[in-house]
Simulated assay, not measured.
Amino acid sequence: MVVKSQLKYIKSLQQKKYRMQYKRFVAEGFKTVEELLRAGWKAELLFATETGLDKELGSNTQLISPKQMSQISSFKTPSKVLGVFEVPEAGEVDFTDWIVALDKVRDPGNLGTIIRLCDWFGITHLVCSTDTVEAFNPKVLQATMGSIARVDITYTDLPSFLKDADVPVFGAFMDGKSVYDTELPSFGILVMGNEANGISKEVSDVIRNKISIPQYGKPSAESLNVATATAILLNELRRS
């Protein structure tokens, strides 16, 4: 049973200010919760609505009714599993492999998809500007499908981070050099920009290499979705 104090606490974590205050976040869905537990993330509370699921997740899982789950879930159609986890400390960024950096990416679905792409392509470090959407937003977590457990995410002053980085920095621009004509190193930083405005001027000023994805056929679409563009560029980074 979810007691009144737990209900209030869990519902408060739907807001960023309380996630920041308590350093906790809510993860929903069996796959996401299972992935986080498997990766060793610390769960403060675990709930399940079906006998069997509670046994799979661990002895500290509380069995609750679907009605109670709907009271603590942030989704219109609640899942069968929900967990409250500690926000992990960001690890030290490893510059010996490729790093993805995001400049003012605002859409939760895009960030969640990019986290999944980093997981798929073996990118373990994702660096975000401080005004990029928060990684523990419920919609971001849902879109990651558990991949957030394997990607280390850091929020920082992006221009300063790039300026201090002693590795090649590549940014995605509409007028950049074709990625297919660019010699790509085995490590560096790939910067992706805001959905509407691309990479900001303050970040652009410290990017040494500007690359693009060429358009084929008759010009029509203004640009690619940032997550789609990230997928194409990460494929080229790994292929080369």
Rank of each mutant, 00 (worst) to 15 (best):
M1C: 06
K4S: 15
S5V: 15
Q6F: 06
L7T: 15
L7D: 07
K11V: 10
K11W: 03
L13C: 01
Y18P: 07
M20W: 10
L36K: 11
W41V: 12
L45G: 10
F47V: 06
E50Y: 03
L53T: 00
E56M: 09
G58D: 07
G58M: 02
S59V: 09
S59D: 15
I64Q: 04
K67T: 06
Q71E: 13
I72M: 02
I72K: 10
S74C: 14
F75V: 11
K76T: 11
P78C: 03
S79L: 06
V84H: 04
F85T: 14
E86R: 09
E89T: 12
G91C: 12
G91E: 10
V93R: 11
D94R: 10
V105W: 00
R106S: 11
N110P: 13
N110A: 01
G112P: 03
I114P: 09
R116V: 10
L117H: 11
G122E: 10
I123F: 01
V127D: 05
D131E: 12
L141F: 06
Q142C: 03
A143V: 02
T144G: 05
A149T: 01
V151D: 08
V151L: 01
D157G: 09
P159Y: 02
K163E: 06
D164L: 03
P168R: 13
F173Q: 15
F173R: 13
D175K: 15
K177M: 05
Y180I: 05
Y180S: 12
L184V: 08
F187T: 09
F187Y: 13
L190C: 07
M192S: 01
G193L: 00
N194L: 05
I199F: 05
D205Y: 00
P214E: 05
Q215T: 11
G217Y: 00
T228K: 08
T230D: 14
I232C: 01
R238L: 14
